[in-house]
């Protein structure tokens, strides 16, 4: 008998003639909506991100390019091919290194870059979580990981209040990365220290 058949057989036998459990959806009494308006969402997200030691800036939509430029001035950085052109000031062009699934940068090349700029798919205010889903404006997972400085644009309409609202908007079959602040560890005496293997600096630009 194959291991598969044997294990499934053991499971069936172990369960015996148990009655099927109640569908938990009937029990879902936890919150599924926050009911917060845009101002409250932005305020909460900023508070939570700053608590994680991320640098956060809220700018009008028209000023995103200027905010991005300020963060990347003088740096050589990766940018996913689908990153909106209007968010990238032409003065940055010569130090912008393009990446896509079709023409991916080598890992060592990424390691030599100073920063990366991406957009984002969904942000959850209550937990200060930004989700990247690998869309063309966010790029491959490696580009937002290897460079030490991540500049991330959060369009205000992608902000939701709580975790269930976030997952409701996400397609789980895409490669998802949930980011809540810069890389950190609690492994030494259970005290949080920011900055280990992932980007040690996280800049968030919320575009309203």
């Amino acid at each position: 008998m194959s291991a598969r058949e044997e294990i499934l057989g053991r499971v069936r036998e172990a369960l015996g003639a148990e009655p099927a459990a109640v569908q938990p959806s009937a029990l879902a009494e936890y919150r599924t909506e926050s009911g917060l308006d845009e101002d409250a969402l932005v305020e909460l997200l900023v508070d939570r991100l700053e608590d994680y030691k991320a640098r956060v800036e809220v700018v009008p939509r028209g000023n995103v390019a200027a905010a991005v430029r300020a963060r990347l001035e003088g740096k050589e950085f990766a940018v996913p091919e689908g990153f909106p052109a209007e968010w990238l000031d032409p003065s940055l062009d010569e130090r912008a290194v393009r990446d896509s699934r079709e023409a991916p940068l080598a890992v060592v090349r990424l390691d030599g870059l100073d920063a990366v700029v991406t957009s984002s798919a969904v942000s959850i205010a209550e937990t200060g979580t930004i989700v990247l889903d690998g869309s063309p404006d966010q790029g491959r997972r490696a580009i937002s990981l290897v460079p030490d400085h991540h500049v991330c644009v959060v369009p205000v309409e992608t902000i939701v209040g709580i975790v269930p609202e976030g997952f409701a908007r996400l397609d789980t079959t895409r490669p998802l990365t949930l980011i809540s602040g810069p890389s950190a560890t609690s492994d030494i005496e259970l005290e949080r220290v920011e900055g280990v293997h992932g980007p040690r600096t996280l800049d968030v630009i919320i575009a309203r």
């Binding site: 994680y52 937990t127 490669p175 809540s180």
Partner: peptide, 30 residues
């Protein structure tokens, strides 16, 4: 949506852990 609220708060006592990765089989080019 349930476990990503229960787990981080119960384990490291954070609202959310810094990174969570979800992957489904192979994503070409990524």
């Amino acid at each position: 949506e349930v476990f990503m609220q229960l787990l981080p708060r119960s384990s490291t006592g954070e609202r959310m852990n810094p990174y969570t990765s979800l992957w489904t089989g192979v994503t070409p080019g990524d």
